[in-house]
Amino acid sequence: MFALCVHRCYQRSARLLVARRQKSSGPVSSPLLSRLLRFLTQHFYDVEMFLNWRSQQGRNRLQKKNVFYAYTHTLYGPDIASAHYILCLGGGFRFVGHSDWFRANKRGKFSWDFLNHKDTPLEEVDLSHTVTNYSGLFNLEHQHHLRTLKLQGCPEVDDWFLAKLHVLQDSLEELDISHCPLITTGGLATLKNLKRLKHLNVSSLPRLQNPGLVIILLEEMLPHCQIIADGYGHRLRPADKVCVEEERVQGQQQ
């Protein structure tokens, strides 16, 4: 019994050591405050409630920004509603037949001149680095002349968003979804619904697994579309196609 006990103690100390080492060498990514809060949640229900409440607030704010602009829609028509939505989010757009862009400035302010162009559809939309999400897309549903959509680095654009892009299937020619942190392979397959797609940028999607293989499959699926896929390390240079093929074979064997 005694020996057992000693043994156990040793085991435990070893385990503790390992645990500590992992902790110290791990990346100190999360800031102190959030680590502290995380620690506190494990001990106090109130803190947990507070965190829940806070994330709910965040979600509500996001939802509010992406509501359907029904009022503008009925009063000014779908085009102005789309335009207003884009500017409110801090994005920019170009009307059909115009050459200049309407954009919100860095502080989110914009001029209301776009109201003079009632019933002019949008041709290009840049929502890069905005919080546009699935619900927000309802505001663009009526843009049947929309040719270019830029969604670079949008934190809320996910696979469901891509699946919903079929509302623009007859017009969209250029799509940029590079640097979107939520997109996975599961959503890319729906891009086939976009019948006229000619340019697609899928660079640096952090959640894409086996990017080499996926890009090959994308190219296969969209033969008439030029696909840009940077930021996946060495694997995607054309010279490395052999390597990608190997990956595919491996994938098959699994």
Partner: peptide, 18 residues
Amino acid sequence: DHLGVVNEDPIDLQFNHS
């Protein structure tokens, strides 16, 4: 939003949209 738990990893359903 529905099933996320504070301090746990977000849920990844591995949804394939097809």
